[in-house]
Each structure stands twice: as C-alpha cells, then as structure tokens.
Write a protein that binds this DNA or RNA. Structure first.
Lengths: 140, 140
DNA sequence: ATTAGATTTGTAATGATTACAAAATTAAAA
DNA sequence: TTTTAATTTTGTAATCATTACAAATCTAAT
C-alpha cells in the first residue's frame, strides 16, 4: 500500500469522514485510476472485486469527497460527470473524437475574473475541447 | 426590430440554416434574454406566445445553433445545460447560493494549455463557482 | 452487550435529453 | 402555379444519469 493512499486516509480522518470500507475502496480507485472516471466506470470496475457494492454508495461517496474538497467534479460535458482526485491547479481537455480527457498545465489560480469584485470564489475550472493528436493522425 | 437581430438573421442565412419561424423565435429570445437560459426556460417563455412550440424543437434549434458556433453551450453544472448567444471571450461565474450566472471578463483566448502541443483546440471555457455579493450580504 | 447514529443497499422515482415517425412546412423543379 | 422532394416541427415514447427513500447493516460510544 503506497504512501499516497495512506496520506489520503489520513486526510479523510482529519476531515472527520468515516473510513468505511466502501469509501476507502472508492478513494483508492480514484488514486490508482487518474483517468477522470465516470460514476459508471468506478462502479463497474469496483463491482468486480466487491460484488455487494451499490451504485448509490458510489454516488454518496463521491458527493462526500467532493464536498470535503478531496475530489474535483468535472462537468466538461453535460451528459457525464467525471471525478478527479487531482485537485491541483490544472485544466482539462476533452477530445471530441475519442472522448479521452487530458490534463494540461494552466495557471488557474492566477486567473482573476475582472468584474468579480465582492464575489467569493470557491472553485475555478478551465475546460478545452477539440481533437487530440491521436485522432488527428488517424483522421477520425 | 433591432439591428443586432437582423445581423443574427443574416448570419443564419450565410451559414445555410433555414430561417424557420421557430428558429428565429429562439434566436430572438436568446438575443433578448442574455441570462444564460436553460432549455426549459426558453421553452416555457416562448410557449406563452407560441403555443404550438414543441420542446423538441427548442432542443433541435439549440443543437443547430451550437454546431454552427452561433451559441455557446454552458455546462457549469451537470444537471442543467445553459445557452449563451454571447460567444465572445468571457468567463462564467455561478453563485452556489442563488444559482445566478454572471459573466466576467477574462482573456480566455490568450490561455495557452501547456502540454497541448499537437492538439487542435476548438473551444475554451472558464467556469468559476462561489457566492455572489448579493447572497453574501444577505448571509444566505 | 446495548443503543444510537451513520452508512450501505436496492428499488422506485425523477428529470433532462434523445429517438422516432407522422404531420406540416418549405424549397426546388417542372 | 402545381408538383415533388427535402427539411422541419411536433408529440410521444424511450433512455439514461442521478436522486429519493426506507429497510438492513454496520460502526462507534456508552
């Protein structure tokens, strides 16, 4: 069990979130699969080794983790909510051809919205759409 | 009938999109209601004066307009797709308390995603969340 | 061990969006 | 102008992600 996961467990504990088996499994999954999975993918994959898992639990857990700031909710597309355990400063690019989501480096924190004086800003998201190099070369 | 709407009609024509009555009504609505309306709001409001209008038509029209680049699709929240006739360079702030969406000025075009060499970028979106001044002062 | 509270589970309900085919409208051709 | 073909609109039904809910299970504290 790697250190990173232990840190995440510690973080849960500090935030007074119960360390139930299911929650730890979801957290571990997100830590090992940094592909911005959907609820369905998380559920389907975890269900293989944890057949009693309910999809509702995955939803509940992700809500708890998002509210606590441990995961970032990605709504780059309206028909699929995705989750990212990497809450650091970065942007998301979605390929409209293959659907893959790529991280990219952009200094979001330094983005200042002019005209937002007096607003309390809680989160910033930068989403790009287009075609990835793979699909461009495959002429999809 | 204002000039701006005439320009929009012209733009439709140039893009070879049929100027049906329903499409013109939706376009006119978006031009007059720059509050980033949802499909349901557009439909409900237009239905009052055009009782034969179907919600499917609103969906179809918005898809056509979005594909042609005449409206921007806003998916700041996963449970409500919104539409903006202002496709110029700006960001969107959603108040988590009252739900209102505010435009703000940010130089999106100049945002360069480092690590996106070889990617074809078709659209860029900047979304902020937080609490607006109104709700802050109302202590909601 | 007991109890209270939190979590999980499965099913049913919700709600936005899409699929589809018939009806209506528009555009093009004769 | 009539005819024909193509496009658009409409209403209903289907789909799919998400949420609501209540019973069952689990956890933590006494």
């Amino acid at each position: 069990m790697n250190t990173s996961f232990e840190n995440l467990k510690q973080e849960l504990k500090e935030k007074n979130i119960n360390l139930s088996y299911q929650r730890l499994k979801v957290l571990e999954y997100l830590n090992n699969n940094r592909c911005h999975p959907t609820v369905d993918k998380i559920y389907t994959d975890l269900h293989k080794e944890l057949s009693t898992l309910s999809k509702t639990t995955v939803y509940n857990t992700l809500r708890v983790l998002a509210e606590s700031g441990m995961v970032r909710v990605i709504t780059i597309e309206d028909n699929e909510t995705r989750y990212d355990i990497n809450v650091e400063n970065h942007g998301h690019f979605k390929c409209d051809s293959c659907g893959e989501i790529y991280d990219f480096s952009v200094n979001i924190d330094s983005l200042i919205g002019e005209g937002l004086d007096g607003f309390m800003i809680n989160s910033k998201n930068v989403y790009f759409n287009g075609i990835c190099p793979n699909c461009l070369s495959n002429k999809n």
